[in-house]
Design a protein around this nucleic acid. Structure first.
Length: 500
RNA sequence: CGCGGGAUAGAGCAAUUGGCAGCUCGUCGGGCCCAUAACCCGAAGGUUCCCGGUUCGAGUCCGGGUCCCGCAACCA
Protein backbone atom coordinates (compact mmCIF):
# COMPACT_ATOMS: atom_id res chain seq x y z
CA UNK A 1 0.00 0.00 0.00
CA UNK A 2 1.19 3.49 -0.84
CA UNK A 3 2.44 5.73 1.93
CA UNK A 4 0.07 8.61 2.67
CA UNK A 5 0.95 12.27 2.78
CA UNK A 6 -1.29 15.14 3.80
CA UNK A 7 -0.57 18.81 3.33
CA UNK A 8 -2.77 21.85 3.71
CA UNK A 9 -2.43 25.57 3.11
CA UNK A 10 -4.24 28.11 5.23
CA UNK A 11 -7.60 29.13 3.91
CA UNK A 12 -7.67 32.69 2.55
CA UNK A 13 -10.40 34.94 3.86
CA UNK A 14 -12.77 35.92 1.08
CA UNK A 15 -12.73 39.67 1.67
CA UNK A 16 -10.23 40.46 -1.08
CA UNK A 17 -8.93 39.05 -4.35
CA UNK A 18 -6.04 36.59 -4.29
CA UNK A 19 -2.69 38.37 -4.05
CA UNK A 20 0.84 37.26 -4.89
CA UNK A 21 1.56 36.33 -1.27
CA UNK A 22 -1.12 33.71 -1.31
CA UNK A 23 0.09 32.53 -4.70
CA UNK A 24 3.48 31.95 -3.04
CA UNK A 25 1.89 29.76 -0.39
CA UNK A 26 -0.04 27.77 -2.97
CA UNK A 27 2.99 27.28 -5.18
CA UNK A 28 5.22 26.18 -2.31
CA UNK A 29 2.54 23.76 -1.22
CA UNK A 30 2.07 22.49 -4.74
CA UNK A 31 5.81 21.94 -5.24
CA UNK A 32 5.91 19.97 -2.00
CA UNK A 33 3.08 17.64 -2.85
CA UNK A 34 4.33 17.07 -6.37
CA UNK A 35 7.67 16.18 -4.83
CA UNK A 36 6.01 13.75 -2.42
CA UNK A 37 4.14 12.16 -5.29
CA UNK A 38 7.45 11.65 -7.08
CA UNK A 39 8.49 9.66 -4.05
CA UNK A 40 5.49 7.49 -4.71
CA UNK A 41 3.18 8.71 -1.98
CA UNK A 42 -0.59 9.01 -2.05
CA UNK A 43 -1.31 12.68 -1.42
CA UNK A 44 -4.17 14.73 -0.07
CA UNK A 45 -3.54 18.40 -0.76
CA UNK A 46 -6.07 20.71 0.83
CA UNK A 47 -6.90 24.34 0.30
CA UNK A 48 -10.15 26.30 0.15
CA UNK A 49 -11.77 29.43 1.46
CA UNK A 50 -12.67 30.81 4.86
CA UNK A 51 -16.07 32.43 4.55
CA UNK A 52 -17.53 33.28 7.93
CA UNK A 53 -17.32 36.35 10.09
CA UNK A 54 -18.38 39.92 10.45
CA UNK A 55 -16.28 41.35 7.65
CA UNK A 56 -17.75 39.05 5.07
CA UNK A 57 -21.26 39.61 6.29
CA UNK A 58 -20.86 43.35 6.23
CA UNK A 59 -19.23 43.41 2.84
CA UNK A 60 -22.04 41.41 1.28
CA UNK A 61 -24.54 43.75 2.89
CA UNK A 62 -22.74 46.75 1.45
CA UNK A 63 -22.87 45.22 -1.98
CA UNK A 64 -26.52 44.44 -1.43
CA UNK A 65 -26.20 40.77 -2.18
CA UNK A 66 -26.89 37.60 -0.28
CA UNK A 67 -23.91 36.62 1.87
CA UNK A 68 -23.74 33.11 0.51
CA UNK A 69 -23.83 34.43 -3.05
CA UNK A 70 -21.01 36.76 -2.19
CA UNK A 71 -18.97 33.86 -0.82
CA UNK A 72 -19.72 31.74 -3.87
CA UNK A 73 -18.31 34.43 -6.12
CA UNK A 74 -15.11 34.76 -4.13
CA UNK A 75 -14.64 31.04 -3.71
CA UNK A 76 -14.81 30.72 -7.49
CA UNK A 77 -12.13 33.37 -7.83
CA UNK A 78 -9.78 31.53 -5.52
CA UNK A 79 -10.58 28.23 -7.18
CA UNK A 80 -9.54 29.70 -10.51
CA UNK A 81 -5.96 29.88 -9.24
CA UNK A 82 -5.87 26.15 -9.79
CA UNK A 83 -5.58 26.55 -13.51
CA UNK A 84 -3.67 29.81 -13.45
CA UNK A 85 -0.87 28.45 -11.27
CA UNK A 86 -1.17 24.80 -12.34
CA UNK A 87 -2.01 23.60 -8.83
CA UNK A 88 -2.70 19.99 -8.06
CA UNK A 89 -4.79 20.20 -4.92
CA UNK A 90 -7.17 17.35 -4.31
CA UNK A 91 -9.52 19.10 -1.87
CA UNK A 92 -11.05 22.55 -1.95
CA UNK A 93 -12.94 23.08 1.26
CA UNK A 94 -15.26 25.98 1.99
CA UNK A 95 -16.08 26.72 5.59
CA UNK A 96 -19.71 27.17 4.61
CA UNK A 97 -19.89 23.56 3.44
CA UNK A 98 -22.55 21.75 5.51
CA UNK A 99 -20.16 18.97 6.43
CA UNK A 100 -17.55 21.41 7.66
CA UNK A 101 -20.10 23.16 9.87
CA UNK A 102 -21.11 19.86 11.44
CA UNK A 103 -17.47 19.01 12.01
CA UNK A 104 -16.83 22.39 13.64
CA UNK A 105 -19.78 21.78 15.97
CA UNK A 106 -18.54 18.33 16.85
CA UNK A 107 -15.10 19.77 17.55
CA UNK A 108 -16.66 22.36 19.83
CA UNK A 109 -18.55 19.68 21.70
CA UNK A 110 -15.37 17.73 22.35
CA UNK A 111 -13.53 20.76 23.70
CA UNK A 112 -16.58 21.58 25.79
CA UNK A 113 -16.82 18.03 27.14
CA UNK A 114 -13.19 18.33 28.09
CA UNK A 115 -14.00 21.40 30.15
CA UNK A 116 -12.13 23.87 27.98
CA UNK A 117 -15.04 26.09 26.97
CA UNK A 118 -16.75 28.46 29.38
CA UNK A 119 -18.82 31.65 29.35
CA UNK A 120 -17.39 34.97 30.44
CA UNK A 121 -17.98 38.66 30.04
CA UNK A 122 -16.06 40.15 27.18
CA UNK A 123 -15.39 43.82 26.68
CA UNK A 124 -15.89 45.01 23.16
CA UNK A 125 -14.20 48.26 22.18
CA UNK A 126 -16.58 50.24 20.07
CA UNK A 127 -16.04 53.41 18.06
CA UNK A 128 -19.21 55.47 17.78
CA UNK A 129 -17.82 57.29 14.76
CA UNK A 130 -17.15 54.18 12.73
CA UNK A 131 -20.02 52.33 14.35
CA UNK A 132 -17.63 49.42 14.49
CA UNK A 133 -15.95 47.21 17.02
CA UNK A 134 -12.24 47.87 17.25
CA UNK A 135 -9.25 45.83 18.31
CA UNK A 136 -6.39 47.25 20.35
CA UNK A 137 -4.06 47.23 17.41
CA UNK A 138 -6.47 49.41 15.46
CA UNK A 139 -6.36 52.06 18.14
CA UNK A 140 -3.81 54.80 18.55
CA UNK A 141 -3.35 55.99 22.13
CA UNK A 142 -6.58 54.23 23.01
CA UNK A 143 -8.55 56.12 20.41
CA UNK A 144 -9.83 55.42 16.96
CA UNK A 145 -7.45 57.24 14.61
CA UNK A 146 -10.32 58.12 12.32
CA UNK A 147 -12.43 59.65 15.08
CA UNK A 148 -10.11 61.13 17.66
CA UNK A 149 -12.82 63.33 19.12
CA UNK A 150 -14.81 60.36 20.36
CA UNK A 151 -13.78 58.15 23.22
CA UNK A 152 -13.86 54.44 22.62
CA UNK A 153 -16.88 52.91 24.35
CA UNK A 154 -16.65 49.62 26.18
CA UNK A 155 -19.56 47.30 25.66
CA UNK A 156 -19.90 44.25 27.82
CA UNK A 157 -21.09 41.09 26.20
CA UNK A 158 -21.18 37.51 27.29
CA UNK A 159 -19.09 35.22 25.09
CA UNK A 160 -17.78 31.70 25.09
CA UNK A 161 -14.08 31.42 25.78
CA UNK A 162 -11.53 28.75 25.03
CA UNK A 163 -9.24 27.80 27.91
CA UNK A 164 -6.04 28.50 26.01
CA UNK A 165 -4.20 29.18 29.27
CA UNK A 166 -4.56 25.55 30.27
CA UNK A 167 -2.30 24.40 27.45
CA UNK A 168 0.86 26.33 28.11
CA UNK A 169 2.79 23.38 29.54
CA UNK A 170 1.63 20.93 26.91
CA UNK A 171 2.49 23.28 24.07
CA UNK A 172 5.96 23.92 25.46
CA UNK A 173 6.43 20.20 25.80
CA UNK A 174 5.41 19.72 22.18
CA UNK A 175 7.93 22.33 21.04
CA UNK A 176 10.79 20.86 23.00
CA UNK A 177 10.05 17.28 21.99
CA UNK A 178 9.92 18.16 18.33
CA UNK A 179 12.58 20.70 17.35
CA UNK A 180 11.45 20.69 13.74
CA UNK A 181 7.76 21.04 14.54
CA UNK A 182 7.88 24.55 13.14
CA UNK A 183 10.24 25.38 10.26
CA UNK A 184 12.29 27.58 10.09
CA UNK A 185 13.71 27.13 13.57
CA UNK A 186 13.60 30.82 14.43
CA UNK A 187 9.82 30.71 14.08
CA UNK A 188 9.69 27.90 16.61
CA UNK A 189 11.77 30.05 18.96
CA UNK A 190 9.36 32.90 18.40
CA UNK A 191 6.28 30.88 19.25
CA UNK A 192 7.98 29.29 22.23
CA UNK A 193 8.80 32.71 23.63
CA UNK A 194 5.21 33.74 23.11
CA UNK A 195 3.81 30.71 24.91
CA UNK A 196 6.35 31.04 27.72
CA UNK A 197 5.10 34.57 28.24
CA UNK A 198 1.74 33.21 29.36
CA UNK A 199 -1.48 32.54 27.50
CA UNK A 200 -4.80 34.25 27.81
CA UNK A 201 -8.04 32.50 27.07
CA UNK A 202 -9.62 33.76 23.91
CA UNK A 203 -13.17 34.40 22.88
CA UNK A 204 -14.61 31.91 20.44
CA UNK A 205 -18.16 33.10 19.93
CA UNK A 206 -20.19 36.13 18.92
CA UNK A 207 -23.78 37.11 19.66
CA UNK A 208 -25.93 35.92 16.83
CA UNK A 209 -28.18 38.97 16.91
CA UNK A 210 -25.18 41.14 16.12
CA UNK A 211 -23.43 38.80 13.74
CA UNK A 212 -25.49 35.98 12.29
CA UNK A 213 -22.91 34.79 9.70
CA UNK A 214 -21.24 31.90 11.47
CA UNK A 215 -21.56 28.33 12.61
CA UNK A 216 -24.20 28.01 15.36
CA UNK A 217 -22.78 27.14 18.77
CA UNK A 218 -24.08 23.70 19.75
CA UNK A 219 -26.79 23.97 22.38
CA UNK A 220 -27.00 27.77 22.35
CA UNK A 221 -28.80 29.39 19.46
CA UNK A 222 -27.97 32.90 20.65
CA UNK A 223 -24.28 32.50 19.68
CA UNK A 224 -22.29 31.65 16.59
CA UNK A 225 -18.66 30.59 16.58
CA UNK A 226 -15.99 33.17 16.10
CA UNK A 227 -14.36 32.62 12.69
CA UNK A 228 -11.04 31.38 14.00
CA UNK A 229 -12.52 28.51 15.86
CA UNK A 230 -14.54 27.24 12.98
CA UNK A 231 -11.98 27.90 10.26
CA UNK A 232 -9.10 26.00 11.84
CA UNK A 233 -11.19 22.85 12.01
CA UNK A 234 -11.14 22.70 8.21
CA UNK A 235 -7.73 21.03 8.34
CA UNK A 236 -9.39 17.89 9.62
CA UNK A 237 -12.97 18.27 8.41
CA UNK A 238 -11.61 18.13 4.87
CA UNK A 239 -10.41 14.61 5.66
CA UNK A 240 -13.92 13.57 6.58
CA UNK A 241 -13.48 13.98 10.31
CA UNK A 242 -15.29 13.00 12.46
CA UNK A 243 -17.31 10.27 10.78
CA UNK A 244 -14.80 9.00 8.19
CA UNK A 245 -12.40 7.71 10.74
CA UNK A 246 -10.49 5.51 8.31
CA UNK A 247 -9.58 8.35 6.00
CA UNK A 248 -8.79 10.64 8.89
CA UNK A 249 -6.44 8.13 10.45
CA UNK A 250 -4.76 7.46 7.14
CA UNK A 251 -3.85 11.09 6.55
CA UNK A 252 -3.74 12.94 9.86
CA UNK A 253 -1.43 14.38 11.12
CA UNK A 254 -0.46 16.55 8.21
CA UNK A 255 1.93 19.26 7.17
CA UNK A 256 0.67 22.82 7.28
CA UNK A 257 1.97 25.71 5.23
CA UNK A 258 1.24 29.22 6.47
CA UNK A 259 2.47 32.78 6.38
CA UNK A 260 4.34 34.36 9.25
CA UNK A 261 1.21 36.28 10.27
CA UNK A 262 -0.37 32.93 10.99
CA UNK A 263 2.32 31.53 13.25
CA UNK A 264 0.27 31.79 16.45
CA UNK A 265 -2.93 30.52 15.04
CA UNK A 266 -1.32 27.47 13.48
CA UNK A 267 1.35 26.52 15.94
CA UNK A 268 -0.25 27.52 19.23
CA UNK A 269 -4.03 28.07 19.08
CA UNK A 270 -4.82 25.24 16.69
CA UNK A 271 -2.45 22.90 18.51
CA UNK A 272 -4.16 23.71 21.81
CA UNK A 273 -7.53 23.07 20.21
CA UNK A 274 -6.34 19.69 18.95
CA UNK A 275 -5.03 18.80 22.40
CA UNK A 276 -8.35 19.78 23.91
CA UNK A 277 -10.31 17.67 21.45
CA UNK A 278 -8.01 14.73 22.12
CA UNK A 279 -6.56 14.65 18.61
CA UNK A 280 -3.00 14.28 17.44
CA UNK A 281 -0.89 17.41 16.90
CA UNK A 282 0.01 18.50 13.39
CA UNK A 283 3.01 16.82 11.82
CA UNK A 284 4.90 19.93 10.88
CA UNK A 285 4.28 23.59 10.19
CA UNK A 286 6.19 25.51 7.58
CA UNK A 287 6.12 29.29 7.86
CA UNK A 288 6.92 31.41 4.82
CA UNK A 289 7.61 35.14 4.69
CA UNK A 290 5.91 38.01 2.95
CA UNK A 291 6.53 39.44 -0.48
CA UNK A 292 7.41 43.07 -0.94
CA UNK A 293 6.96 44.83 -4.23
CA UNK A 294 9.96 46.65 -5.67
CA UNK A 295 11.39 46.85 -2.18
CA UNK A 296 8.31 48.26 -0.52
CA UNK A 297 5.45 46.83 1.43
CA UNK A 298 2.55 46.15 -0.90
CA UNK A 299 -0.37 48.44 -0.37
CA UNK A 300 -3.30 49.64 -2.33
CA UNK A 301 -2.48 53.27 -1.62
CA UNK A 302 1.03 52.89 -3.04
CA UNK A 303 -0.45 51.16 -6.03
CA UNK A 304 2.30 48.53 -6.06
CA UNK A 305 0.19 45.47 -5.39
CA UNK A 306 1.30 42.55 -7.55
CA UNK A 307 -1.60 40.63 -8.99
CA UNK A 308 -0.77 37.00 -9.75
CA UNK A 309 -3.13 36.97 -12.70
CA UNK A 310 -1.23 39.83 -14.36
CA UNK A 311 2.22 38.34 -13.96
CA UNK A 312 1.13 34.92 -15.14
CA UNK A 313 -0.48 36.44 -18.20
CA UNK A 314 2.70 38.34 -18.93
CA UNK A 315 5.31 35.67 -18.24
CA UNK A 316 3.53 32.33 -17.98
CA UNK A 317 2.86 29.96 -15.12
CA UNK A 318 6.17 28.12 -14.85
CA UNK A 319 8.35 31.25 -14.85
CA UNK A 320 6.25 32.72 -12.04
CA UNK A 321 6.45 29.49 -10.05
CA UNK A 322 10.20 29.40 -10.63
CA UNK A 323 10.75 32.95 -9.45
CA UNK A 324 8.64 32.58 -6.33
CA UNK A 325 10.33 29.33 -5.36
CA UNK A 326 13.89 30.08 -6.39
CA UNK A 327 14.47 33.81 -6.29
CA UNK A 328 12.99 34.48 -2.87
CA UNK A 329 14.62 33.33 0.36
CA UNK A 330 12.40 30.47 1.50
CA UNK A 331 12.53 31.39 5.19
CA UNK A 332 12.36 35.17 5.03
CA UNK A 333 10.57 37.99 3.30
CA UNK A 334 11.42 38.42 -0.34
CA UNK A 335 11.04 41.02 -3.01
CA UNK A 336 9.15 40.89 -6.27
CA UNK A 337 10.70 43.19 -8.81
CA UNK A 338 10.20 43.16 -12.55
CA UNK A 339 13.88 43.71 -13.26
CA UNK A 340 14.93 40.84 -11.05
CA UNK A 341 12.18 38.64 -12.36
CA UNK A 342 13.33 39.10 -15.93
CA UNK A 343 16.98 38.58 -14.98
CA UNK A 344 16.20 35.40 -13.11
CA UNK A 345 14.02 34.09 -15.89
CA UNK A 346 16.58 34.78 -18.59
CA UNK A 347 19.58 33.53 -16.65
CA UNK A 348 18.18 30.25 -15.41
CA UNK A 349 15.31 29.25 -17.64
CA UNK A 350 16.13 30.74 -21.04
CA UNK A 351 19.95 30.55 -20.93
CA UNK A 352 20.02 27.70 -18.44
CA UNK A 353 17.58 24.83 -18.66
CA UNK A 354 15.96 25.89 -21.94
CA UNK A 355 19.17 26.36 -23.85
CA UNK A 356 20.75 23.21 -22.43
CA UNK A 357 17.74 21.14 -23.45
CA UNK A 358 17.99 22.54 -26.92
CA UNK A 359 21.74 21.87 -27.09
CA UNK A 360 21.43 18.27 -26.01
CA UNK A 361 18.47 17.37 -28.18
CA UNK A 362 20.05 18.96 -31.23
CA UNK A 363 23.27 17.05 -30.70
CA UNK A 364 21.38 13.78 -30.40
CA UNK A 365 19.61 14.64 -33.60
CA UNK A 366 22.77 15.67 -35.41
CA UNK A 367 25.33 13.24 -34.13
CA UNK A 368 23.27 10.24 -33.14
CA UNK A 369 20.55 10.10 -35.72
CA UNK A 370 17.91 11.20 -33.25
CA UNK A 371 18.36 8.05 -31.18
CA UNK A 372 19.67 7.32 -27.72
CA UNK A 373 23.24 6.03 -27.98
CA UNK A 374 24.77 3.20 -26.02
CA UNK A 375 24.62 3.52 -22.26
CA UNK A 376 27.65 4.99 -20.52
CA UNK A 377 28.92 5.75 -17.04
CA UNK A 378 27.38 8.39 -14.79
CA UNK A 379 30.07 11.03 -14.45
CA UNK A 380 27.92 13.51 -12.53
CA UNK A 381 27.02 11.29 -9.58
CA UNK A 382 23.26 11.73 -9.82
CA UNK A 383 22.81 9.74 -6.66
CA UNK A 384 24.55 12.48 -4.69
CA UNK A 385 22.49 15.05 -6.55
CA UNK A 386 19.26 13.38 -5.47
CA UNK A 387 20.55 13.25 -1.94
CA UNK A 388 21.05 17.00 -1.83
CA UNK A 389 17.73 17.52 -3.56
CA UNK A 390 15.88 15.46 -0.94
CA UNK A 391 17.67 17.23 1.85
CA UNK A 392 16.67 20.64 0.56
CA UNK A 393 13.05 19.67 0.04
CA UNK A 394 13.04 18.08 3.47
CA UNK A 395 13.72 21.43 5.05
CA UNK A 396 11.35 23.36 2.80
CA UNK A 397 14.32 25.17 1.33
CA UNK A 398 12.94 25.78 -2.13
CA UNK A 399 15.62 28.30 -2.99
CA UNK A 400 18.26 25.69 -2.22
CA UNK A 401 16.47 23.15 -4.42
CA UNK A 402 16.59 25.63 -7.26
CA UNK A 403 20.28 26.33 -6.66
CA UNK A 404 20.98 22.59 -6.84
CA UNK A 405 19.10 22.34 -10.11
CA UNK A 406 20.83 25.34 -11.64
CA UNK A 407 24.20 24.01 -10.69
CA UNK A 408 23.43 20.65 -12.34
CA UNK A 409 22.51 22.51 -15.52
CA UNK A 410 25.76 24.48 -15.31
CA UNK A 411 27.78 21.29 -14.88
CA UNK A 412 26.30 19.91 -18.08
CA UNK A 413 27.09 23.10 -19.97
CA UNK A 414 30.65 23.12 -18.69
CA UNK A 415 31.14 19.48 -19.64
CA UNK A 416 30.02 20.17 -23.19
CA UNK A 417 32.50 23.03 -23.54
CA UNK A 418 35.24 20.92 -22.07
CA UNK A 419 34.67 17.92 -24.35
CA UNK A 420 33.99 19.91 -27.53
CA UNK A 421 31.88 17.16 -29.11
CA UNK A 422 31.48 19.09 -32.39
CA UNK A 423 35.25 18.93 -32.87
CA UNK A 424 35.47 15.25 -32.07
CA UNK A 425 32.61 14.48 -34.43
CA UNK A 426 34.46 16.27 -37.20
CA UNK A 427 37.56 14.24 -36.48
CA UNK A 428 35.56 11.06 -36.63
CA UNK A 429 35.89 10.30 -32.90
CA UNK A 430 32.90 8.73 -31.18
CA UNK A 431 31.02 11.00 -28.82
CA UNK A 432 28.32 8.51 -27.88
CA UNK A 433 29.51 8.20 -24.31
CA UNK A 434 29.17 11.93 -23.74
CA UNK A 435 25.85 12.15 -25.54
CA UNK A 436 24.39 9.42 -23.38
CA UNK A 437 25.57 11.15 -20.22
CA UNK A 438 23.93 14.36 -21.36
CA UNK A 439 20.61 12.98 -22.45
CA UNK A 440 20.29 10.78 -19.38
CA UNK A 441 21.16 13.78 -17.22
CA UNK A 442 18.43 15.69 -18.99
CA UNK A 443 15.99 12.99 -17.96
CA UNK A 444 17.05 13.36 -14.35
CA UNK A 445 16.79 17.12 -14.63
CA UNK A 446 13.29 16.93 -16.07
CA UNK A 447 12.13 14.78 -13.18
CA UNK A 448 13.81 16.99 -10.61
CA UNK A 449 12.34 20.11 -12.14
CA UNK A 450 8.90 18.59 -12.34
CA UNK A 451 7.60 19.71 -8.91
CA UNK A 452 8.64 23.27 -9.69
CA UNK A 453 7.89 23.53 -13.40
CA UNK A 454 5.31 20.85 -14.15
CA UNK A 455 4.49 21.98 -17.65
CA UNK A 456 8.03 22.58 -18.88
CA UNK A 457 9.32 19.39 -17.31
CA UNK A 458 6.52 17.50 -19.00
CA UNK A 459 7.63 18.91 -22.34
CA UNK A 460 11.19 17.69 -21.83
CA UNK A 461 9.90 14.27 -20.84
CA UNK A 462 7.79 14.20 -23.96
CA UNK A 463 10.89 14.86 -26.06
CA UNK A 464 12.55 11.91 -24.37
CA UNK A 465 9.44 9.78 -24.78
CA UNK A 466 9.21 9.20 -21.06
CA UNK A 467 5.70 8.76 -19.71
CA UNK A 468 4.32 10.27 -16.55
CA UNK A 469 4.29 6.89 -14.84
CA UNK A 470 8.02 6.55 -15.38
CA UNK A 471 9.05 9.46 -13.19
CA UNK A 472 7.99 8.07 -9.81
CA UNK A 473 9.88 6.08 -7.26
CA UNK A 474 13.46 4.90 -6.82
CA UNK A 475 13.72 3.30 -10.22
CA UNK A 476 13.22 6.65 -11.93
CA UNK A 477 16.27 8.00 -10.10
CA UNK A 478 18.55 5.21 -11.20
CA UNK A 479 21.22 5.88 -13.78
CA UNK A 480 20.79 4.38 -17.22
CA UNK A 481 17.04 4.28 -17.69
CA UNK A 482 17.09 5.61 -21.24
CA UNK A 483 17.55 2.68 -23.56
CA UNK A 484 19.75 2.54 -26.63
CA UNK A 485 17.97 3.09 -29.91
CA UNK A 486 14.94 4.90 -28.49
CA UNK A 487 13.84 7.95 -30.42
CA UNK A 488 14.21 11.50 -29.16
CA UNK A 489 12.15 14.33 -30.56
CA UNK A 490 13.23 17.93 -30.38
CA UNK A 491 10.21 19.95 -29.37
CA UNK A 492 9.35 23.60 -29.28
CA UNK A 493 11.57 26.11 -27.54
CA UNK A 494 10.94 25.73 -23.81
CA UNK A 495 11.40 29.29 -22.64
CA UNK A 496 11.07 32.18 -25.01
CA UNK A 497 13.53 35.01 -24.79
CA UNK A 498 12.03 38.23 -23.51
CA UNK A 499 11.96 41.06 -25.98
CA UNK A 500 14.06 43.92 -24.77
C1' C B 1 14.76 46.94 29.84
C1' G B 2 7.56 43.63 25.45
C1' C B 3 8.85 39.58 21.43
C1' G B 4 11.31 38.41 17.04
C1' G B 5 13.98 38.97 12.24
C1' G B 6 17.73 41.50 9.40
C1' A B 7 22.57 44.42 8.22
C1' U B 8 28.22 40.16 3.94
C1' A B 9 31.21 42.74 -3.64
C1' G B 10 27.25 47.65 -7.72
C1' A B 11 22.22 44.57 -6.89
C1' G B 12 19.93 40.09 -4.69
C1' C B 13 21.44 36.34 -1.51
C1' A B 14 24.90 31.78 0.64
C1' A B 15 28.38 30.19 4.16
C1' U B 16 27.18 22.01 8.41
C1' U B 17 29.29 21.87 14.81
C1' G B 18 34.11 28.75 14.99
C1' G B 19 38.80 26.80 10.16
C1' C B 20 41.63 30.28 3.40
C1' A B 21 34.52 34.85 2.71
C1' G B 22 31.20 31.98 -1.73
C1' C B 23 26.78 31.94 -5.49
C1' U B 24 23.55 34.38 -9.23
C1' C B 25 23.03 38.85 -11.99
C1' G B 26 25.78 43.05 -13.66
C1' U B 27 30.94 45.02 -15.35
C1' C B 28 35.79 44.06 -18.01
C1' G B 29 39.07 40.65 -20.95
C1' G B 30 39.59 36.09 -23.67
C1' G B 31 37.71 31.38 -25.90
C1' C B 32 34.01 28.65 -28.66
C1' C B 33 30.39 27.77 -32.81
C1' C B 34 26.58 21.92 -30.59
C1' A B 35 22.77 25.47 -28.63
C1' U B 36 17.37 30.14 -27.75
C1' A B 37 23.49 36.20 -29.94
C1' A B 38 22.99 31.07 -26.00
C1' C B 39 27.68 28.37 -23.60
C1' C B 40 32.85 28.08 -21.37
C1' C B 41 37.39 30.24 -19.05
C1' G B 42 39.70 34.29 -16.54
C1' A B 43 39.75 39.18 -13.99
C1' A B 44 38.29 43.41 -11.18
C1' G B 45 35.22 44.34 -7.05
C1' G B 46 34.64 43.00 0.64
C1' U B 47 37.50 46.81 7.03
C1' U B 48 31.29 40.71 6.62
C1' C B 49 27.05 47.90 10.26
C1' C B 50 30.25 50.05 14.62
C1' C B 51 33.09 49.30 19.46
C1' G B 52 35.08 45.80 22.81
C1' G B 53 35.90 40.58 24.54
C1' U B 54 36.83 34.95 24.30
C1' U B 55 40.14 31.98 20.98
C1' C B 56 45.95 29.59 17.75
C1' G B 57 41.79 31.23 14.67
C1' A B 58 35.29 34.95 14.74
C1' G B 59 30.71 36.61 9.29
C1' U B 60 29.83 32.65 12.95
C1' C B 61 30.42 32.71 20.15
C1' C B 62 29.90 36.71 24.39
C1' G B 63 28.97 42.07 25.99
C1' G B 64 27.64 47.06 24.39
C1' G B 65 25.83 50.40 20.51
C1' U B 66 23.56 52.19 15.59
C1' C B 67 20.10 51.59 11.61
C1' C B 68 16.00 48.96 8.97
C1' C B 69 11.58 45.57 9.26
C1' G B 70 7.61 42.51 11.24
C1' C B 71 4.49 41.16 15.53
C1' A B 72 2.37 43.07 20.22
C1' A B 73 -2.96 38.25 21.29
C1' C B 74 -9.91 37.75 20.03
C1' C B 75 -6.50 42.16 13.39
C1' A B 76 -6.57 35.98 8.71
Amino acid sequence: MKEKYYLTTTLPYVNADPHIGFALEMIQADALVRYERLLGKEVVFNTGTDEHGLKIHRKAEEMGIDTQDYCDQYAARFHSLRELLNLSYTNFIRTTDPHHKQAAQEFWKRCDANGDIYKKNYQVKYCVGCELEKTDSELVDGKCPLHIKYDIELIEEENYFFRFSAFQEKLLQLYSERPDFVVPAHRLDEIRKFVEGGLQDFSISRLKEKMPWGVPVPGDDTHVMYVWFDALVNYISTLGWPEDEENFRAYWPGVQVAGKDNLRQQSAMWQAMLLSAGLESSKQIFIHGFITSEGQKMSKSLGNVVNPVDVVEKYGTDPVRFYLLGALPSYEDGDFSTRRFEEFYTAHLVNGLGNLTSRILTMIEKYSDGKIPEKSEDIFDVRAFWGRYDKSFGKFSFDEVVRELNSFVAKCDAKISEEKPWEKAKNGESIDALLYVLVESLRHLAIAFFPLLPESAENILKSLHISHEQIQGEQARAWGVLAKGNEVTKGEILFKRLES
